[in-house]
Design a protein around this nucleic acid. Structure first.
Ligand SMILES: [Zn+2]
Ligand SMILES: [Zn+2]
Ligand SMILES: [Zn+2]
Ligand SMILES: [Zn+2]
Lengths: 142, 142
DNA sequence: AAGTAAATGATACAATGTCTCAACTAGCAC
DNA sequence: GTGCTAGTTGAGACATTGTATCATTTACTT
């Protein structure tokens, strides 16, 4: 379940602590990307004295290790577990999001890998534009 | 040149002010995405008394209007003019970025447009993984 | 069980972003 | 042009978010 998390942390030379478990667990079972503040609040349910600084230290660590991803939502940065989908259709007017399924980018990854020597682990594909409501709004309210 | 900016602002019912001109001009001629603080500093070269609050008000406005885009870089949020490319290959280890050219997402846009009623104006495609250096580092320094 | 370096949490601090409000001005009507 | 008015501005107080420091604790090794 969260075995990947533990081994990943270990193999990178980091210790497995209650604080890190708590932070990851929170992301893991969240159904939507969370802000750092939310992670802290929820994390304290799992690890009583979880410190704010630790959360801010852990989240970027998880990103560096590939266990989580940082997303820019209207309202600030949010984090989500790597497993979650990252294909969205975002309205630039109101910020509404629609998660997507299909994706054409897979093929390109291999190509990039060979071309630049990068180890391509994933990708983020976001379409942006206007939702039906905001299209109407733009017309009517000038 | 920046005619699109002016008409876009007008047609959405916003006024054309020196402050907004300055902010947009800064983004416009920047070769790399800028933080809000950088926009403020550079903007004051163009409009002496440009206020910090105005910058923080204007940047999201430009995003809502489709004139700029917000990007999440390691180190914080950065803004760039809509024209700039948004196809990157980002290293999750060190944050290094490589701008890309080709893209397979265009076709999907039309499809989404019909399916959800969204007006799809563009997309952001980001591959993430490890640069060659960070791959070595991960092996050697555990 | 003991030793040790990594990690934590509290706190102070810095950076980033938001709100309020009096003063100003872009756009419009005349 | 002259005035009107609502949108906009800039200053500064405030709130939030993120970082640095450091004494204490603790996960891992032996
Ligand atoms: Zn919308
Ligand atoms: Zn995909
Ligand atoms: Zn790297
Ligand atoms: Zn593309």
């Amino acid at each position: 379940m969260s075995a990947g998390f533990e081994t990943r942390l270990r193999e990178a030379g980091y210790r497995l602590t209650p604080a890190r478990r708590a932070v990851f667990a929170v992301l893991r079972q969240a159904s939507t990307p969370l802000s750092a503040a939310e992670v802290w609040r929820l994390g304290r349910a799992r690890h009583a004295g979880l410190g704010r600084a630790t959360v801010y230290r852990t989240l970027p660590l998880l990103v560096r290790l590939g266990l989580a991803r940082a997303l820019l939502a209207p309202g600030g940065v949010r984090y989500q577990c790597s497993e979650g989908g990252t294909h969205r259709l975002v309205c630039r007017g109101c910020g509404a999001e629609l998660p997507l399924s299909g994706c054409p980018a897979g093929a390109l990854a291999q190509e990039l890998s060979e071309k630049y020597g990068y180890l391509v682990e994933g990708h983020l594909l976001e379409f942006y534009g206007l939702c039906p409501d905001c299209q109407r709004r733009m017309r009517h309210e000038v």
